[in-house]
Design a protein around this nucleic acid. Structure first.
Length: 112
DNA sequence: GACCTGACGCCCC
DNA sequence: AGGGGCGCCAGGT
């Protein structure tokens, strides 16, 4: 599993399964993968610009619901705009009712 | 081959 | 309760 796929690919896969209108945080993904720390998740998503794979990295935020990685997008506001288009209200780069929109990777496994 | 970095998170003070 | 520091782990240089 991890033999052929890098940690990146695992993070990408989980991130791709995040339903529209839902968001999660780095720690949740790291915990689900049980491979390490949230830092790596964010770091991996930084390289999310992977050819042929659309990774909704905008749905991944830090534990505070803050768009910490917006600066890495095409435009700093792109992340907030994408979330808004999905019905998530973002104010001051912070997701409103973050707990309400929170999605745990375990839901993915349950769905599958 | 070793050191540093990195979109975070939790423990300790 | 708030702030600061350290830990995680793989990839890049």
């Amino acid at each position: 599993m991890t033999d052929k796929y890098s940690y990146f690919d695992l993070v990408y896969e989980v991130t791709r399964h995040i339903p529209a209108g839902r968001v999660t945080n780095y720690g949740a993904i790291a915990d689900y993968l049980a491979l390490g720390s949230a830092r790596m998740v964010g770091w991996a998503l930084n390289h999310s610009f992977h050819p042929g794979i659309d990774v909704p990295a905008h749905r991944v935020v830090n534990r505070k619901g803050e768009l910490s990685g917006r600066n890495h997008f095409e435009t700093p506001t792109k992340m907030a705009e994408l979330l808004k288009l999905e019905g998530i209200e973002v104010i001051d780069n912070c997701i409103v009712n973050f707990d309400q929109y929170f999605w745990h990777p375990q839901e993915m496994d349950k769905k599958m």
